[in-house]
Design a protein around this nucleic acid. Structure first.
Lengths: 338, 338
DNA sequence: AGCTGGCACTCGAAACAGCGGAGTGCCAGG
DNA sequence: CCTGGCACTCCGCTGTTTCGAGTGCCAGCT
């Protein structure tokens, strides 16, 4: 276990490095922080911290920079979550309150988060799989063509076209619509399949193929993984670090274009605890010098989706975590209201 | 007017510069192109071209690079549109054919275009204002809450929530739905307003406020400008030019994040002619060293939206134009089918 | 035992000089 | 009007030097 003062030194190093973006030496440290000891002492502490793998020097006779392990310790033990100012909170609320539909909510959120943290923001659309059905509508567009519209409790709307082999009567459709809704409204998506399984049986033989088609499409829509859409914003913020990033920015941009990578990035946890993944803790090469701060958000207790930011490992963790958490909370509120 | 050979020299300069990304000198030109004259002659031609403002040298005793004006001449007079190979066309069709809904079509298109041109691709969602109504649906979510669903002929679906002051009966809703559809289905958005103006009058006085509310929301949805959404892809391609782009990439990324800028970028023309805007021809600073190649696409004769790419002024214009045009055509076909 | 001042050492960054070569403009001759 | 020749320019590369921040270590002090 490291002594109190050595932890203090590590904290100071992280803070200074995040601020100046330059390796920090023993002398500068004592000048900018009231450590109460001399540079020589700090040097000894630094030697220990380096031996333990918390900091490193880019080359001999340069200052130290934190390693991933160092940031990890900093985040876990040394840093709190910096709460936002009242003004900032108010600004968030005002900004999000103007949203008109789900797309707009997500769009505003991503811009807000990017602006607040000055980093790349990532917001996942409320996932279908964890939400429930508000309404199912069936429209007859043409005699043998039906449109299925699914409305979720998070305000999301999905629609699918269904082509039937034979025309379907208006009355049959109305019947199906009524029965379907009485069974599935308010239900979790995952609970729906068994509830509708026997529906075709209660229809005339002639209509069963059409009914089965509608059900198949509905179930397909419910499980559809591809619908885990994601919105991205603030990519321009990547260039803020370009003085040492010209090589790194490329793979990051590439990674960010892959939906799959983004989804994994936000993590799998379904609760609302914040996850911070630092540097090499990210599975994906090219994101090895970036950190991800993500948290779940949702209209109720349970998270229905995640949002977060991607930035250099050298980021202001307390501030970023504070912003991410605050935004997640407000988005949750907005969703609950709508 | 420039002589035939001088134009030929300009063409050679553009081609070489696009290929090598380095200023091109007289000697290299004569070696790589069969101009039939000596370097000295080419030098004279170059001097003239420079005087006329078509090319410039970054500094004395360096080769020449084309100016915006030079590219303009090249595009207008010297370059054709390079058609894609059969294999490429087939690949496009295969890739786009798998799309399941409008989001997917646009998503695939943007990825395709980015990959094909190795540049940043921009695709505008089919605009509401130029399309027509396929169907209007009214759902009663709660006694005093109605959802309006608008389906367009381009497959786009818009939904809006309407809160009424008093409950609205099912029969009234059905009545309104039927009348509304009989009047507006198949109509251009711009033609709709006068057609529904007198609808409230045919309802009981009690129901008129609700009917008016629905109509107001519908008309609002029809003209809503903000719905001119845009999808972006291939931002990572920006870094391909970073050897001289570290400063330029920043403002470009910033510009690309602004919906408004993107919309203007694609231009206002409603027909299907291709527009190429080169360097300073772009109104927006920060895009001064980029070119935009855009073209309209649509399900019928008329363009309902635009798509294009953004790249450095030093781009392969014939190839890019070919790809953009081909993709636009196929997307139009896909939309017409669905 | 732990802290401190002193000192020699290391090594990257910046400044500087010299060189080579690609490219130019110009001119005189075909 | 084209061409070969020639003197000139200036960028980019490389090697050298200098400068300074920072380090590790040690001896002495509390």
């Amino acid at each position: 276990m490291l002594s109190e003062r050595r932890l203090e030194v590590l904290r100071a190093i992280v803070q200074d490095y995040v601020g100046t973006e330059e390796p920090v030496g023993s002398k500068a440290l004592t000048e900018r922080h009231r450590l109460g000891v001399s540079p020589a002492t700090v040097r000894n502490d630094m030697a220990v911290l380096e031996e333990e793998g918390y900091i490193a020097q880019p080359h001999t006779s340069a200052g130290r920079i934190p390693t991933d392990k160092g940031y990890r310790l900093f985040v876990d033990k040394l840093a709190g979550v910096k709460p936002l100012s009242v003004a900032e909170r108010r600004a968030i609320q005002n900004f999000l309150d103007g949203a008109v539909d789900l797309d707009d909510v997500v769009g505003r959120t991503v811009r807000l988060l990017a602006q607040l943290t000055r980093q790349v923001a990532v917001v996942q659309y409320p996932s279908l799989t964890r939400s429930s059905v508000r309404h199912v509508e069936l429209l007859s567009l043409a005699p043998a063509r039906i449109m299925l519209v699914l409305i979720t409790d998070t305000g999301r709307v999905e629609q699918r076209l269904i082509d039937c082999v034979a025309p379907v009567g208006e009355t049959v459709l109305a019947d199906l619509r009524a029965r379907l809704n009485s069974r599935v409204v308010g239900r979790r998506f995952t609970d729906v399949p068994p509830l509708v399984q026997d529906l075709p049986e209660s229809f005339e033989a002639d209509d069963r193929p059409a009914v089965a088609g509608v059900l198949a499409t509905l179930l397909e829509t419910l499980v559809e993984e591809k619908e885990e859409r994601i919105m991205l914003g603030g990519a321009a913020n990547l260039t803020r670090f370009n003085h040492d990033f010209p090589l790194t920015i490329r793979p990051v941009l590439e990674a960010l274009e892959e939906q799959m990578v983004l989804l994994k990035l936000l993590g799998e946890a379904t609760d609302s605890t914040m996850t911070v993944r630092i540097g090499h803790e990210n599975f994906h090469e090219g994101l090895n010098s970036t950190s991800v701060v993500a948290v779940g958000y949702g209209s109720g207790d349970e998270a229905v989706a995640k949002l977060g930011v991607v930035g250099p490992t050298r980021m202001d963790y307390p501030g970023t975590m504070g912003a991410v958490r605050a935004v997640a909370r407000y988005v949750g509120q907005i969703l609950a209201e709508s």
